[in-house]
Computed example of a mutant assay.
Amino acid sequence: MSGYDINLFQPKPEHHYICLVCNKIVKDPQECGQCGQMYCNVCVTQKPTCKSPSCQKVMPQQYNKIQGAMLKAYKNLTLSCPNVSCKKIFTIVDFEQHQTECVKSKCQNYDVCNEFITQEKNISSLYCSVICECTDQLHNNAGVSKKQFEIIKQYVTQLSNSPSQIQSIQTQNIQQQPIVMGNGGIVFKWDKNKCGQSIQLSNDNASLFLKENSHIFRSVLGDIPFERGIHYWEIEGDSRTENELKIGVVVGNNINLNAAFCDFPQGFAYYGLSQLRNGQTNSGQSYGKKFKNEGVLGVCLNMNNGTLSFQLNNDYMGIAFRSELLKKGPIYAAVAVLHCGGCTVRSGKPVPKYME
């Protein structure tokens, strides 16, 4: 298995820890014998040519385990468990052992709560919390008022005898982010915790900009997911942008943000070169008009019929994607930027009639 998701690390490691093959933080690190560039062991088992632009690429290519101070620094990197019900922080040395011990089975009520079950939860093995256990039983007895009454009575008694569970529920409620509605829909900004490296957010996280020497797409996601219904938002171009953006949505948020979100099957994007991308990196279907650093691109996600469509400067470009994946949340607005580019999101807007 290739490297670690950079978004798990606290703080984020320096760039030289990124494997140039998988674009993740190196796992079981090897270094190029010529230039010292680090790679995951599994990524260089076939001795590929080093991808570092500064490498002299002497053949045959040699890769060796890192040692000394570099190895010590690597072992001190810290990252959090990806299990949303755990989130404990470990050194990279202890992380693998924890992964084998941390149970990550989905809660029986996962479609509602999006939570996993850990060994540390002293509850039913099917549910992440008493709330989910109660919710599921109420659902299974819909229409049977007497039975539902008995279920609620049982759980009220259970909670009253367990102050720690009440405290846990209160904490969960405090941590939940409120969904703000504008004149037409959900108001969201860019998520500072779901942001590729070097992307800078401003304007209360409504604007983003990337400027770096590398020519690698970086992605950022919205901070509020769409769960159902029809949603519309606009992307305003930034005059400083030099490279076209990839704009659209991604199903779920477990992706490598140091790549274009639409490189993956769950990512759907309009590319400013008037192309579409879905699980593709180098080519895609022609679509619409070009968009880079001026104008406004409208995005409409219709989860009722599973479609994603775009308009440019009020000129409707038609349905870009139709997929069953686009019918079920959580789905996040997403943008991928390259080298030098940015934009501003305008959310909470009504859906234009011609895009419904």
Rank of each mutant, 00 (worst) to 15 (best):
C195D: 02
L297C: 03
P13C: 06
G272L: 05
G222Y: 01
A320E: 06
S207L: 07
G279M: 13
Y270E: 00
A206C: 10
V103D: 10
M355H: 12
Q176F: 06
I169M: 11
N313C: 11
S214C: 01
A260V: 05
K27C: 00
L138R: 08
I169D: 07
K328G: 00
F264C: 04
P60A: 11
S160L: 10
N141T: 03
F291M: 01
Q148I: 06
G252E: 04
I216E: 12
K87Y: 01
V337A: 08
V335F: 04
N253M: 01
Q158G: 03
G36V: 13
I18T: 14
N83M: 09
C19G: 05
T307H: 11
F268L: 00
V84I: 11
N140V: 00
P53E: 11
I331C: 08
S125V: 12
E227K: 13
R322S: 14
F9Q: 03
K51I: 14
A73G: 00
N205L: 07
C40Y: 06
K106D: 10
N213Y: 03
K189Q: 13
E31R: 14
K121N: 11
L208N: 05
K192S: 14
N314W: 07
M70W: 03
M1N: 14
I179T: 15
A142N: 13
Y63W: 08
G185Y: 02
Q119C: 13
C343K: 11
F95K: 08
I92S: 06
Y110W: 13
K57E: 08
L8C: 08
S323M: 06
Y17L: 11
C40F: 10
S309H: 06
I169N: 01
Y17R: 11
K194Q: 14
V26C: 14
N161I: 02
N140Q: 14
L221W: 13
